[in-house]
Nucleic acid binder design. Sequence first.
DNA 1: TTAGCTGGAGTTTTT
DNA 2: CTCCAGCTAA
Length: 740
Amino acid sequence: MTANPLLNGLNEPQFQAVTLPPRSALILAGAGSGKTRVLTTRLAWLISTGQVSPHGILAVTFTNKAAKEMLARLTAMLPMNARGLWIGTFHGLCNRLLRAHWREAGLPQLFQILDTADQLSAIKRMLKALNIDDEKFPARDLMYFINSAKEQGLRPNEVEAWDDFARKRVELYQSYEAQCQREGVVDFAELLLRCFELLSRNEPIRAHYQRRFRHILVDEFQDTNVLQYRWLKLLAAQGSEHEAAVMAVGDDDQSIYRFRGAEVGNMRDFEREFHVDSVIRLEQNYRSHGNILDAANAVIKHNDGRLGKNLWTEAGSGEPLRVYEAFNDIEEARWVVEEIRALISDGAARSDIALLYRSNAQSRVLEHALFSAGIPYRVYGGLRFFERQEVKHALAYMRLIANPHDDTAFTRVVNFPTRGIGARSLEQLQDAAQAHGTSLYGALNFLTGKAAQSVGHFIGLVDQLRFACEGLKLPEMVEQVLELSGLRAHYQNEKEGQDRIANLDEIISAATNFISEEGYAQVAAEDEAAPPDPLAAFLSHASLEAGEHQADAGQSAVQLMTVHSAKGLEFDAVFLGGLEEGLFPHENSILEREGLEEERRLMYVAITRARKRLYLSFAQSRMLHGQTRYNLRSRFFEEIPAELMKWLTPPANARGFGGFGNDRAAQPVASSNPRTFGSARKSGGNATGFHVGQQVTHAKFGAGVIVNAEGSGSDARVQVNFGRDGVKWLALAVAKLSAA
DNA sequence: TTAGCTGGAGTTTTT
DNA sequence: CTCCAGCTAA
């Protein structure tokens, strides 16, 4: 064994992964298996053993947080100058490449990055200018269409279109591209696609980076999309004699972003195309007790086509999973609060307790209960700093300084604070711009009358800002913008404007930090590039790294978040609520196998967040979209071995979920709940005379089969499969159903 | 220009 | 139910 202290304390597979010879490898890293440690130690080991200089490394992540953590841990292990190290997100790295080679990429030097909200408003503006019926082509759908095309690496001329509707969408994709090019802006997907095209079309640039990067490490590989994988193949010179060593680290069981283009299949493709001869599995878990891991393993086993992995731990089996069946969502929340109180009085820190749910709508009831109980909590997932309207307004003024032809920024602030430029003036301006093929800024000369005056005034302001900021440092520039634009004054006059002013001031600090900290320095370290423009760099930073989800740190608080945002985190105690059919697994995913398997992976992620204690709960009824819904408990309960669970409510009876199979045929409607709740059961028992699996006839839909039932008494509803007429929910009190 | 209304939709999210 | 976008009236 080596004496290298870096390798101390690694388990066998970790050690193997860290010290692999320079060939491409796939590391299957289970939840809590020390993945980040392996990645960073691998980097440190490669560098410290002289196998590669920091210059020859490319490490790619999905989030800024992950990139920062990797960098921090690496420099802690191996003190070095971070300059020349390429560690970042796909988008951040592509931005860096495009800034360095903007000319070759066909972009203006100070191109701006549109975030999702900017992109949507750009599309809306385009649809309006082209007089497109937005009923037929909703901006959101079009955005989704464009982004998914780009994520597959497809330009408009490469998208297949077989009917008029599809052809029109492609045409709109084309116009959108033209608009972006005209305005000098790129959206997130464009960053990647443009960078990919730059590398594939420009031989010298491609060769340069292919020669440079000898070791490429990819984190969360299961989340890569088609384009990202192609980008990696290209940079790695895959298939050539100069192929770099790519270490792909990921977990197919934790792939939960299919809906935004992630392609788990990339893992198998990688294995084949990069001729991976050894797949290393990190299966020892350092996070959870045995029962929790057993539950997770048992659930995920129900998925097909896994690469295969089984988590284990040296820790004991620990406590059983605690299962609670609530009467309704409110009662579920009440119970959660009660348990949290008990945990806290047993000495648990609030921040070690997490409440996880499938969809954001579920947080409301929980928040209400926590608030009433006076328990501090924190909800993840709100607006982030650079997404706040006052911050975006200020940034829009700054974008106009960098590029007055940025129409997205222009429209955002042309009348904010209000300066008498209403819809009709703007319309005139837009028409003029359209007619003369120029930006809104450039269209002033074609205006006449009152509009010319008011718009002229605003354009004067933009020019004034540009002159006033000439040569200023970034924070001073922000200060100027806040004053001259009238933003600060505007919010000072507003009743509730104090928070907004505080956020505006926060931009100044953000700018100060940005200049002195890594973000800017990293770009500045780029050897090939001209010194970057601090303003453009700051604006990129704002788009690519929208900041914390919520600023409040304050006192230790219970953590509330969706299962998606909990990925990568861990807590001593985890409450997983709303485990009901239709909610989790979500009804929109239940129909196709792929969707259901992703829900199951989501369940796997949720379970593996818990260190010591895991609570699972579901409610017999809950308020959703203003209606009371009666759901069956989630099928995932049937996938967890019964001996791992301790029921805090009378244990489930034989009504277990069994899909639509025969084993449910005897389930009586209106008697499915193991507990009764007084008046909730008005006409108790099996009074309706119907049961799941029964053949029935409906006056309008004809013959059908009852496939599902929920509720009781006058609320009882049955789901009936009418075959060609589809599956319908019918209230027994209303629908005229008769036994066939 | 803005307040107030109406209608429609309503998983998951990072960059 | 509750949030939003988009429209109408003042």
